[in-house]
């Protein structure tokens, strides 16, 4: 889609806001609708949009495929690690009460960290799936449809 000027300009304008919105959804999930799953999908969708408009190779310059091998397990490890941390601090697995001075503070901290882990894994998986499909085919040309 290299010569669609409107698509290129509009997506270039939109992508930073999509990324920012994903971060808002991620960290505001305690108060309004949102959380790690939605934020991960939106964050991944921004890169998918970028790759659709500018081509997969340009997108892989911005987000190298080798990062995925770190990001995808990292999120799950953050989630599981939170559980281990609460074990080490004397609680049961994934019992956030012990993570901070007060149980409420611990719950807040635990929920933020765990949601962050979910967001990281979902982002990584969405981008990995898209790169896997897109890497198989040449860039989609207009006359393909």
């Amino acid at each position: 889609m290299r010569h669609h000027l409107i698509l290129r300009v509009v997506s270039k304008l939109l992508i930073p806001f999509i990324l920012l919105y994903a971060l808002y959804v991620q960290f505001h999930g305690d108060y309004g609708p949102g959380g790690g799953f939605q934020a991960g999908v939106i964050f991944g969708a921004a890169f998918v949009l970028y790759a659709l408009i500018y081509g997969v190779e340009t997108a892989q310059k911005a987000f190298p495929a080798s990062w995925l091998a770190i990001l995808v397990p990292l999120g799950l490890l953050i989630f599981g690690g939170t559980g281990v941390a609460s074990l080490l601090l004397g609680g049961t697995y994934l019992d956030y009460d012990v993570l901070a001075a007060t149980p409420t503070g611990g719950q807040h901290l635990g929920i933020i960290v765990v949601e962050f882990g979910v967001g990281v894994t979902v982002t990584g998986v969405i981008i990995a799936i898209f790169f896997a499909y897109a890497g198989r085919t040449d860039d989609i040309q207009d006359d393909d449809w």
Binding site: F37, G40, I129, R136
Partner: peptide, 20 residues
């Protein structure tokens, strides 16, 4: 359902990969 939706898309992607 919130988690099921995201798991659903991941498994659909796996199914489509098998089809490919």
């Amino acid at each position: 359902i919130l988690t099921a939706i995201v798991v659903g898309i991941a498994t659909t992607a796996l199914g489509l990969a098998l089809v490919v």
